[in-house]
Amino acid sequence: MQMGVPLGIILLLSLFATLSCVLFFEVKHYHYFYLFLAINIPISFCNPKHVDFLKRTYSKSDYYRIRLTENIALALPFGAMLLLSGYIFSGLSLLIVSLITALYTPKIISSYAVPTPFYKNPFEFIVGFRLSFALIFLGYYLTYISFIYSNFYLSIFVVLAFSVLGMMYYIKVEETYFVWIYQFTPKAFLFSKVKQAVYSLLLLCLPVIVVLAVMRPTGVFIILGFMLGGIGMLATGVFCKYSSFPEELSLRQSMLLLFSVLFPVLILFTLPYFYIQARRQLKEILL
């Protein structure tokens, strides 16, 4: 604290840098997944509620200053790691997207109701799809590239990236009213949420899975294994969201979730932990 930077932040950044380096060097094509994850951050900050609030509250110059600070502060660690690891194009792309989305919110995000295949199961995947449809198409484009160059693991990364994206749709806590309306017990509510989430994720991943199966019919167990991992991550995200309900996620919970994404084996512990917490929190609202 004496140097003006809390020790926790220094530790966190060091851990982040170390983990990123290890994953870049140990896992093939990890930077695609990393870029995909990072690029979603500035895009998610384009949501109309957030942008409208800032526009109404602050002057034009302050608005741009806040938006630039938000996007750059969040994208910079990822961008810096990509650049330092030699992925110049990915790093620069991330920083440019952060700048553009800070200065300009695409009209399509704020006014047009993009049709989604999740209509029957509101609302997380519908809202998430509308906020990140550009990323989803980028995922499908990567699948196409992987098919052209017969790169099986690139498509596997797309499956994992979609799982993390789906998980991020569940980070924002809704108003109590939207939980209270359910005629379910906490257990039934959580399972119905997970069921909906898994169904939506499978729908999103279906084209990628088909491509994977065509590319390597013998790799069905690998595909299943990664898909199950993705579903595990998604379920952890759903339970995590309600583990502090009606409050937003605490720093501790956010960190646990982040480490579960970076080290998926942790899901074996975090998933039941978040489930128990979520059931306890929901008892106050549901029957």
Partner: peptide
Amino acid sequence: LTLITGKEHLQLLCNARR
């Protein structure tokens, strides 16, 4: 909720009450 149409809102409330 933001980015939800009127129809999707009705669907959500109907789903919640089966």
